[in-house]
Design a protein around this nucleic acid. Sequence first.
DNA 1: TAAAAACTACGAATAATTTCGTAAATCATA
DNA 2: TATGATTTACGAAATTATTCGTAGTTTTTA
Lengths: 124, 124
Amino acid sequence: MIKPTESELEILGILWSKGPSTVRVVNDELSLKRRVGYTTTLKLMQIMTEKGLLRRKKDSRNHIYFPVAKEDDTKNAMIQRFIDTIFDGSATRLVMQALGNHETTPEELEKIKELIREKEGGEK
Amino acid sequence: MIKPTESELEILGILWSKGPSTVRVVNDELSLKRRVGYTTTLKLMQIMTEKGLLRRKKDSRNHIYFPVAKEDDTKNAMIQRFIDTIFDGSATRLVMQALGNHETTPEELEKIKELIREKEGGEK
DNA sequence: TAAAAACTACGAATAATTTCGTAAATCATA
DNA sequence: TATGATTTACGAAATTATTCGTAGTTTTTA
């Protein structure tokens, strides 16, 4: 699976949350966070299409872009890479460190416990 | 906190696991995984020193390099960035996705549960 | 102590990523 | 239908990251 660059990831994030979108929409969204020219966003999305990260369909004058890979698959691949480079391949170490140093509400802890029960039990 | 590049992270990883080391030691270790010239590693470590990622002390002919920031602090900062870009700031989402898609032994699950108990209970 | 070996400094080439200007095409509307 | 607004294509500049060669210094050892 192709590794998106930092900027590409921003764009994927927007497409995941907003669904298939035009360059205009993505650029507007990006512009909320930082200054970025329209053609910059356009070029990036064209490159992502070449790389196979995005596909697009024509809609009159515009192109509507959408990610090729599923959000979950992409995120899992990224977690895997992250774990491999930083945590020596151990997902547990990542989880421990993430849990150990971030605020979590009781509800969130409950959800995690539930997930663990499922993994332990086979069925919940 | 400065964000290390991919290559810089490799070097940090080696220094974390082997302790303060010379360029030679780091380069030998890197070379186990891929071809890399000695002066490449040297230059990288010099740049990292300029950036403030590493410090070094002179030891006769050599320099001995070591990370400025603690391993845990660096990893936490990286997790934070990862969470912010990919999981919308939610550590729980990262944990859920990491747990949901990676093999974990019962022992590991037990360790995680223990950590959760501590977080819930205040004291264990 | 002279030659060889190992090390540092540093400039610069290469590669990857991000940015944007310009030209041409498409579409809306005056 | 022609003017203006929006979009696409594309080359190339700017920036950042990686790689390495060469020169000069220090240390080892024959």
